[in-house]
Simulated assay, not measured.
Amino acid sequence: MTVTSSYPRPHPPEAARVTSETAELLEVLWGRASTAPVSASQLRVLFILEHNEGINLRTLADALGSTPPSTSRLCDRLEAVGFVRRQTAASSRREVQLELSRHGRAFLADLRGRREAELQSVLERMPVAQRTALLTGLEAFCDAAAAQIHGGGAADDARTA
């Protein structure tokens, strides 16, 4: 796939189309790297818990855009394979906090290593200048996406730049 445009900088619709195609290709590459004993939904739970240690079930359900009963079932399965632990909150015995187990953290580290190896084999085929441009663009994309997700102005600034 080649990005061709008569513009010095691709307009947002063209960039969105190419980014979407890229995400689809990443899914294929990551699928090759995955020997995951978890579903895509369960993997999202692991990623959320990794960055939000000790959150409760309702907060996790909100982050997933799901219901607490569905989220609880996801966590049941992850707890059964040893990736998640539930603990009673110190502040309230009625509240349960969720956290990754050591096994869950090791699983994510291994998965990331396999994914990065798949990506590295693709990136090695690219000229250095294009890899550099890709890295610069991805860093800006991550900044803009994080700002949008976390509420804010930096994403608006990035869109107008």
Rank of each mutant, 00 (worst) to 15 (best):
L100T: 10
L98H: 02
Q97H: 10
L74K: 04
T88M: 08
Q97E: 12
F83Q: 07
Q87D: 12
L111W: 01
L111C: 05
C75I: 15
E79I: 06
S72R: 14
E95Q: 13
R93S: 12
A90M: 07
G82C: 08
S70H: 07
F83L: 10
H103T: 13
V81N: 01
V84R: 00
C75A: 15
S92N: 14
C75P: 02
L108C: 04
F83Y: 15
G82Y: 05
R94E: 09
G82D: 05
E99P: 00
V81P: 00
D110Q: 14
E99A: 11
L100C: 13
S92M: 00
R77S: 14
S91F: 13
A80L: 05
D110S: 15
L111R: 09
D76R: 06
R94N: 10
R77V: 08
T88I: 14
R94D: 10
R102F: 09
T71Y: 05
A109E: 13
L98I: 04
L111P: 04
T71V: 09
T88L: 09
R85S: 13
Q97K: 08
H103L: 11
R94Y: 05
E95K: 14
R86D: 03
L100W: 10
A89W: 02
L100F: 12
S92A: 11
L108K: 04
E99T: 11
F83C: 08
E99D: 06
L74S: 08
G82H: 08
L111F: 03
